[in-house]
């Protein structure tokens, strides 16, 4: 029986593991991946202490920090559900079952899909949700980035160093990314911004050849070999039955990171805490771990 099981190993989960380890809690971290969304980020210039670091590098630093404390870690394992029985929480995964006195849910978010014809067919065949991973394969090609927020513009800027021409396809009237990033994108000659434009289909042969888009009712096709979908994120909270969530599926927490079930805490992007930032997630992870520790101390 563990004192604490942490679900997820992104900035929130890893920071929670460091704090819990320093409180000498007997803990286990279960996660599908390491670094979460941070590992998929391009350039990070707002994590205090690092004026510049790439997402994958920062994620590697986080992992190194966790490993310093020899935390028990199940990687590539997915939590399917949990239930509370008296003072014990049973956690069920795709590979096993575990018991703990407290749980921190830090399972983060994942990319939202377009839900248009051709998307599933061309996934990884020109269409991708990870510009950081797959971007380099599109050297000299014409590509489209779908979205208008920070992650879309971040992907666009990464691609300006690789691709020939980039169409930034934004469904709303204006981009919503940080002003400084918007300026960089607008100044770049390789980028064409298409506002008020919606993707209606992805087409191709074996690989992507183009997109069908609609601008204010007017349909046209754009010839591209790559499509980068960056239209936001949805919380990985489907497995958290019995936990209160908001309309977006984010787990509701109070300022102590407590959920509606005692002994179960949540932190990071999966929660309804505003501002999905690496530094915010890390801070929330620390709070959740200390909260879980104090909860156990009170029970003794």
């Amino acid at each position: 029986m563990y004192d604490l099981i942490i679900i997820g190993a992104g900035p929130a989960g890893i920071t929670a593991s460091v704090y819990a380890a320093r409180e000498m809690m007997n803990l286990l971290v279960i996660s599908k991946d390491v670094g979460g969304q941070a590992a998929l980020s391009g350039d990070v210039e707002n994590y205090t202490g690092y004026q510049f670091i790439t997402g994958p590098e920062l994620a590697a630093k986080f992992e190194e920090h966790m490993k310093k404390y020899a935390v028990a870690f199940k990687e590539d394992e997915e939590v399917k559900g949990f239930k509370r029985e008296d003072d014990i929480i049973l956690v069920r995964t795709d590979k096993g079952a575990y018991q703990a006195k407290t749980v921190i849910i830090a399972s983060g978010k994942r990319s939202k899909e377009l839900n248009v014809p051709g998307e599933a067919k061309f996934k990884n065949k020109g269409l991708t949700y990870c510009a950081t991973c797959d971007g380099p394969l599109f050297k000299g090609k014409d590509v489209a980035v779908i979205g208008g927020g920070n992650s879309a513009l971040d992907a666009t800027l990464q691609l300006t160093k690789i691709a020939n021409r980039i169409y930034l396809i934004n469904i709303t009237g204006e981009l919503t990314a940080d002003a400084m990033v918007q300026q960089k994108v607008k100044e770049n000659q390789k980028v064409s911004v298409l506002n008020n434009t919606q993707v209606s289909a992805v087409f191709g042969d074996k690989m992507v050849n183009g997109l069908k888009v609609k601008t204010k009712g007017l349909e046209k096709t754009i010839s591209v070999q790559g499509v980068f979908v960056e239209i936001g994120l949805i919380p990985n909270s489907e497995f958290t039955e019995g936990i209160e969530k908001n309309e977006q599926g984010e787990i509701k927490v109070n300022c102590h990171n407590e959920t509606n079930i005692s002994g179960i805490f949540a932190a990071g992007d999966v929660t309804d805490v505003p501002e999905k930032q690496i530094i915010v997630a890390a801070g929330e992870g620390a709070k959740a771990a200390l909260g879980a520790f104090k909860y156990l101390s009170r029970k003794k």
Partner: peptide, 10 residues
């Protein structure tokens, strides 16, 4: 692989 892809390093 690509140098920037986290699953490649894993």
């Amino acid at each position: 692989s690509t140098p920037s892809c986290p699953f490649c390093s894993r």
